[in-house]
């Protein structure tokens, strides 16, 4: 029973993280914040996957979601690094750190 409620707690936290990330993505104009927001969204998903690895039936962890999380993190790191480099380049070219048509 305890693992079950813990699992639900993890799942709800992960959904909250996903929602917060999504909100921040639209609410803030600064590109670095947007990139961080996307990272928060993916963190939520990772937490969700980790929570699914715990089965209520036995003590064995399901290794597949854990492997998926590692893969997901590496993919996200690559995308984040590239995005930050692009923001650096944009800043270098125009001095802006936000997309031109965002008003805030």
């Amino acid at each position: 029973m305890e693992t079950m409620s813990l699992k639900i707690f993890y799942s709800l936290t992960s959904i909250a993280l996903f929602g917060i990330g999504m909100y921040a993505l639209f609410a803030y104009a600064h590109l670095l914040r947007k990139i961080l927001a996307v990272n928060i969204m993916f963190t939520g998903i990772s937490l969700f996957l980790v929570a699914t690895a715990q089965r209520s039936s036995d003590s064995n962890l399901d290794p597949i979601p854990l492997a998926l999380v590692i893969t997901g993190i590496v993919v996200l790191v690559s995308a984040t690094a590239f995005a930050i480099m692009m923001v650096c380049k944009l800043c270098e070219k125009t001095g802006m750190t936000q997309l031109p048509d965002e008003d805030r």
Partner: peptide, 17 residues
């Protein structure tokens, strides 16, 4: 994907990092 990301960063050739 990792190699591609490294390659993309090279292709950006940002100077003022």
């Amino acid at each position: 994907v990792l190699v591609l990301a490294a390659f993309s960063v090279i292709s950006l050739r940002t100077v003022q990092l």
